[in-house]
């Protein structure tokens, strides 16, 4: 038993640091301040390279300026850019193309990504090589990959037309990049090729986290492959599928380099998305005010889509 009557040993008082501006950040009372202090560099960086340019773009969109110099604010505020934008057929065409591309590329990429992940999740010889090959398109720099595709898709001497002709699938070479439908298909094909590996990798990670016991129990209950996929695999993958969907949608919406290198938005606007149109207005026609208005509208659309998707998939994600 401890003798409580014994005097307690005398210890030297703990010497606390005087801290920043005399505030002891190590004390629990100031723990929150320390947290903010540690966050400060990142916050400043985000404010400087993300928030400030975004606010600047929003302000420029309310000025009728050709070139955005630091003196653009001298001109008066106007809604002219937005009025012109919503009356422009090119803008509505770009909205339509972006939406079409969003639906087509996202759905095909998700399906191909899921299929590829399920495939390489099976046990077979050479599985490691197959996994590496699936990830390869994602690892190749975008512009390098697209230039290679340009040669593959070349209407005169491209290998794709040659193969299709040799196989008897087509009777005449297809002008992949000079006709509206083939150009849209070519852009879709390249975007899916570039985008599906990321989805596959995400889903593969998700597949490997599903406990094997679930499948064993299902087998005991007599569930076939299809039922096991529908009732075990898909529900368990929902969190991963939700995140992948949001990221893919945003990637398709803002992608610029694939379309710019392949078709430049043509022919006759068949692949002109909002990103391409914004670039063209800013750097070909030098209408920075108008281009900023386009950028702001794109930002709003992206935010709305993200909010909707996050809300829809949040029960799965969180």
């Amino acid at each position: 038993m401890t003798d409580l009557t014994q005097p307690r040993p005398v210890t030297a008082p703990v010497r606390r640091s005087s801290g920043l501006f005399g505030i002891d950040l190590a004390s629990p009372r100031h723990a929150r301040k320390l947290g903010y202090l540690l966050l400060l560099p990142a916050v400043l960086l985000i404010l400087g390279i993300l928030v400030y340019p975004m606010l600047l773009a929003i302000e420029i969109s309310f000025h009728d300026v050709k070139f955005a110099t630091l003196s653009f604010g001298a001109s008066e505020y106007t809604l002219k850019n937005y009025v012109k934008l919503f009356a422009s057929s090119d803008f509505w065409n770009a909205i339509g193309v972006s939406a079409k591309l969003l639906v087509v590329v996202t759905s095909i990429s998700m399906l191909v990504g899921l299929g590829a992940a399920l495939l390489v999740n099976q046990q077979f010889r050479g599985r490691g090589v197959a996994r590496m090959l699936i990830a390869l398109p994602w690892a190749i720099p975008e512009v390098v990959a697209v230039i290679t595709w340009l040669w593959i898709l070349d209407a005169s001497f491209g290998v794709l037309n040659w193969m299709l002709l040799k196989l008897g699938v087509i009777g005449l070479p297809i002008s992949w990049l000079n006709q509206p439908l083939p150009a849209f298909s070519a852009v879709t094909m390249v975007m899916v090729w570039k985008g599906f590996p990321f989805i596959s990798i995400m889903i593969l990670a998700g597949l490997q986290s599903i406990p094997e016991e679930y499948y064993q129990a299902a087998r005991v209950d007599g569930a076939n492959v299809w039922k096991r996929f529908i009732w075990i695999t898909l529900p368990c993958l929902m969190p991963v599928l939700g995140v992948s969907l949001v990221l893919t949608v945003l990637w398709v919406f803002r992608d610029f380099s694939i379309i710019n290198v392949l078709t430049g938005g043509g022919p006759v606007g068949a692949t002109e998305t909002l990103a391409i149109m914004t670039y063209e207005e800013a750097f070909s026609f030098f209408r920075m005010g108008y281009a900023s208005a386009l950028g702001v509208v794109t930002l709003v659309i992206c935010a709305l889509i993200s909010a909707f998707l996050v809300k829809k998939t949040s029960h799965a994600v969180f």
Binding site: S156, N161, L172, P173, L177, G264, G265
Partner: peptide, 18 residues
Amino acid sequence: GDGIKDVYGTGVHMVSAN
């Protein structure tokens, strides 16, 4: 005679509208 032309007489720019 495979349906693919091996040589073209000349060439004109037909890609990006620029």
